[in-house]
Design a protein around this nucleic acid. Structure first.
Lengths: 140, 140
DNA sequence: TTGATTGCAAAGGTTTTGCAGCTAC
DNA sequence: GTAGCTGCAAAACCTTTGCAATCAA
């Protein structure tokens, strides 16, 4: 994505443009669920003075603007996701594994369900289904 | 629940019985998604020497035994849930609050959905929907 | 008896905060 | 000009670990 494109996106969302913020955004887009430390390491080359505080600040700003999503690992660590596509999780109850599960039909069905049957006193912004179970062993 | 009942449950699951463990289990059952600190404070009266380490140990043991569930807040904090009945969660993205959402229709709809459209290579035993969003302020 | 649990203290790791100087708008 | 951002250091926070004494089975 070109810088101009990113800057346009930021402006659209009322997000201030700084080179660090653009870099953080790029880092999230270009890697798979990075955590803060990973992002820091990725950007240290270009921004030797960059610190965790700034990365956190920017991730928060980008998330508030709806440009990225926060994902929590099973251990409660923050990771970030630049793919805004809704997805769900398969959690292995024995092996501590989380798998992404993309299922547009499911997502749509749930959105529709809650549109018809809203929850009193709660405004939903995102729905995620967690399926607990076991990964089936494949015959070999 | 009587002590005898709890002890029977523990034995059934092969969980060692200690008074601290019983107390931690009671604390989870009797409160809403408590975090470790809340449990500690609840039990300090009766167990002045109780420490976080022991609470963590016991929560882990109880979770492994399937007697309670671990839930992660939107902020990545561990909370525990003693309700094993199927239900869903509303997670406040601002306030570190978890609300239970009982909705049999939703649960049934999802079970039906996955019965018709099973996930290849994964056997579902429990489905939980997490809805992230904001608790709406009531007009006063 | 022996393997698990407790409680204490300390460490570990992640995220947040305060603040002075700087920057985008 | 001013509200917001950066970078630094320190603090805050939550969870885990090591270990000696104790306890359940």
């Amino acid at each position: 994505m070109s810088n101009e494109e990113i800057i346009r996106k930021f402006r659209e969302k009322g997000v201030r443009v700084t080179i660090q913020r653009i870099a953080v955004y790029r880092a999230v887009l270009s890697s798979h669920h990075p955590d803060v430390d990973t992002i820091l390491r990725m950007l240290k080359k270009d921004f030797p003075n960059l610190t965790a505080a700034t990365v956190y600040n920017n991730l928060e700003a980008l998330e508030k603007a709806g440009l990225i999503h926060k994902v929590l690992t099973d251990k409660g660590k923050m990771r970030y996701d630049g793919i805004l596509e809704e997805h769900h999780h398969l959690l292995d109850t024995e092996e501590d594994v989380i798998l992404d599960h993309f299922d547009e039909e499911l997502t749509r069905m749930l959105m529709e369900y809650f549109r018809k049957k809203p929850i009193k006193g709660f405004e939903i912004s995102r729905i995620m289904v967690q399926m607990f179970g076991r990964t089936k062993k494949e015959k070999e």
